[in-house]
Each structure stands twice: as C-alpha cells, then as structure tokens.
C-alpha cells in the first residue's frame, strides 16, 4: 500500500535538497491547487526563519483568500477587518516599535476597500512590510471584478469583460504609493517560474531588512494567478498571466 511508505523511506537523507520551513504549519493549505499564495506564504516564512525573527514578528491577515493565513504561518498573527490591515499593523508597530510587523493582503483588500489605509500607512512611513498578492480578481467570493482586473477581463461581475467606460480603469497602486516619500521600497514580482520565485524571496528579504533598519514602508507586490477565478487550468493561467498581466503590471523594482 502506497500510504504505508513514510517520507523518510522515499527521501534518502543524503539526497534531501529542500525541506519545508518550520515556520509553515502542517495544516493543509486552503488555496486552490496551482495558486501562487502557497509560494508567497512559504517565501515570507523562510525569510522570517532565516532572519531569526520569529519571536518578534507579528503578521496581519486580510479578508480574502488569505484570510486564514494564520492557520499556515507559525507565528503570532492577527486577522484584520477587510482592508484595514495597514491600520492594524500601524497599531501594532506603534505599540511595539521593535517588533517586525507585516501585512499580507490581496488586491481587493489592499487596492479597493483598504485604499485609504494603504496610502496613509505608506505616507506616514510606517515601518512595516506590506506583501500584496495581485491576481486581478476577488478569488474567495467567487471571481468578482477587482480594482486590478484588466480591461476586457471577464469576471462574475464583468461577465462581458471589464468595460473601462462603465467600470473604470484597473489601478496600479504600487506605482501610486511608490510616489510617497514614506515608501522606501516598492517592487513588483511574480512566482510562476522558479527564477521569479527566487527574486521574490530576495525582495521580501530586502523589505524585512528595511524594517530592521527603520527605513519606512516597503511594499512587495506579487502578480499571481487565480486559476479558479480566471476559470483556467493552473498551467493555462500561468501562461495567461505571462501574456496579459505582466504587460499592464510590469515586473521589477519601482522604487
């Protein structure tokens, strides 16, 4: 029987090239297979583990697909009302300036209902890290149009495609906040290819180092797929991301 084989039997010790960070719990991820969230979770936890700051890090989960992030991240966490994570993080950081504080938010949370909190936390140069997963859709509620939904992109509330005249433009909020003096680091990354995963981890590491060095707000946007919301296979969604999302949301450091 296959399930009688232990991981130790499959993986001989000398051949082990990768292991899960101790900062991810054993809880099975609630994300759809193929979604980028799991990778971004892992990278964030790896950075915290490698920096040795688990005992002074407090994370803030949003409302959205990653509302249950605290189930998977083995650190102290708070779950914020929809869009309010940067304000909650402000409260934590002001109360405990020597702790490491980060928010983990999606595009609906950060760029629609929480726009005000995002902009003002950045403008106050709150010494926090904002990890922003942008998949251009409301995943958790079933694929509705997001502030970042591309022109012509179909969603359950733009079933004929996003009509700019009627529904407005997709928003590039990372570019917007990069213009604020309080932001020390604004970057856009992706995790659908191994090389990009490594770059994203470097960006997250830099963001936490900025916080350690008290430089101000760092925002790391990760353009991700949503194969369920986009109604595509995981492979197809990654191709679509590459062909469509990245031309509107180009990768690289913005500030």
């Amino acid at each position: 029987m296959a399930n009688n084989i232990t991981p130790e039997e499959i993986i001989k010790k000398g051949k082990l090239v990768f292991s899960k960070t101790a900062l991810m719990t054993d809880k099975v991820l609630s994300y759809c297979p193929g979604c980028g969230h799991g990778v971004v979770h892992r990278l964030t936890m790896e950075v915290i583990e490698e920096m040795g700051i688990q005992d002074k890090t407090i994370g803030v989960a949003p409302v959205g697909c990653s509302v249950l992030a605290y189930e998977f991240m083995n650190i102290d966490m708070q779950q914020a009302p929809h869009g309010r994570a940067p304000a909650v993080a402000t409260g934590i950081k002001r109360a405990f300036p020597d702790k490491f504080v980060f928010t983990y938010q999606g595009d609906g949370d950060l760029a629609a209902i929480g726009t005000s909190e995002t902009i003002h936390a950045c403008n106050r140069a709150e010494n926090i890290v904002i990890i922003f997963v942008n998949n251009g859709i409301y995943g958790m509620t079933g694929g509705q149009m997001a502030p970042t939904t591309l022109e012509g992109m179909k969603s359950s509330t733009s079933p004929y495609g996003r009509d700019i005249e009627m529904m407005g433009h997709p928003i590039k909020i990372t570019e917007m906040v990069a213009g604020l003096p309080g932001v020390c680091f604004a970057t856009r990354q992706a995790v659908h290819k191994p090389g990009l995963v490594r770059k994203t981890k470097k960006a997250i590491r830099k963001a936490f180092e900025n916080q350690r060095d008290k430089k101000g707000t760092s925002i790391v946007e990760v353009v991700s797929n949503c194969n369920s919301g986009w109604k595509m296979t995981p492979v197809k969604s990654n191709e679509w991301l590459e062909e469509n999302m990245l031309s509107f949301f180009p990768l690289g450091d913005i500030k």
């Binding site: 708070q78 914020a80 304000a87 909650v88 402000t90 409260g91 950081k93 109360a95 909190e117």
Partner: peptide, 8 residues
C-alpha cells in the same frame, strides 16, 4: 483598527 492592532 489601530486600537485593534495595539490591543491585540
């Protein structure tokens, strides 16, 4: 919400 964060 800042109160929430600090109180927590």
């Amino acid at each position: 919400n800042m109160v929430y964060g600090a109180a927590a």
